[in-house]
């Protein structure tokens, strides 16, 4: 008779279920070394991006990225540098969304994570920044 073994298995399944439930309903896992590294890189870059957001040269796009809005205020000599900054920022953002989905065991959530971030970047943007909503740019 190996009923005790089965009961233990059932208990294990119940416990695992609670753990998964907590993971699904509570918090998303965002404390991994990969995510921390991306965050740090983005935080460092923000020192350069901040003034560009404030001047309206760049803005937050609807797809969770950063995009050029009006480069006319940026001196010609610096435009290449701004473009480079934006492409590294967007590469980090793509990696961030991918890593969050992967850290939670659901790589297919990447586009949902991106959509959530897109909304939150725009919602949390300070007054004066430009954001893309339903087609056009608007200033917060």
């Amino acid at each position: 008779m190996n009923a005790p073994k089965q009961i233990r298995a059932a208990l294990g399944a119940v416990l695992m279920c609670f753990a998964l439930f907590a993971a699904a309903q509570g918090d998303l896992e965002i404390n991994t070394p990969a995510i921390a590294a991306i965050k740090q890189s983005m935080q460092a870059r923000h020192a350069q991006l901040g003034p560009l957001f404030a001047s309206g040269a760049i803005g937050l796009s609807r797809d969770g990225n950063v995009a050029v809005r009006d480069a006319s205020g940026v001196p010609l000599a610096q435009r290449a540098q701004v473009n480079a900054l934006i492409s590294s920022e967007n590469a980090d953002r793509a990696a961030l969304y991918r890593e969050i989905a992967r850290a939670n065991g659901r790589p297919d959530w990447e586009s949902d994570v991106r959509a959530t971030f897109a909304q939150r970047w725009i919602d949390r943007a300070p007054a004066g920044w430009w954001v893309q909503r339903n087609g056009g740019w608007s200033q917060k």
Binding site: L20, L28, R120, R124
Partner: peptide
């Protein structure tokens, strides 16, 4: 349970990361 994307948890996670960045 795990089929659905946890939108509220994702917003919370996004806010935490945005605040840090």
């Amino acid at each position: 349970i795990n089929i659905y994307f946890p939108a509220a948890a994702a917003e919370k996670a996004a806010d935490r990361i945005i605040e840090e960045v």
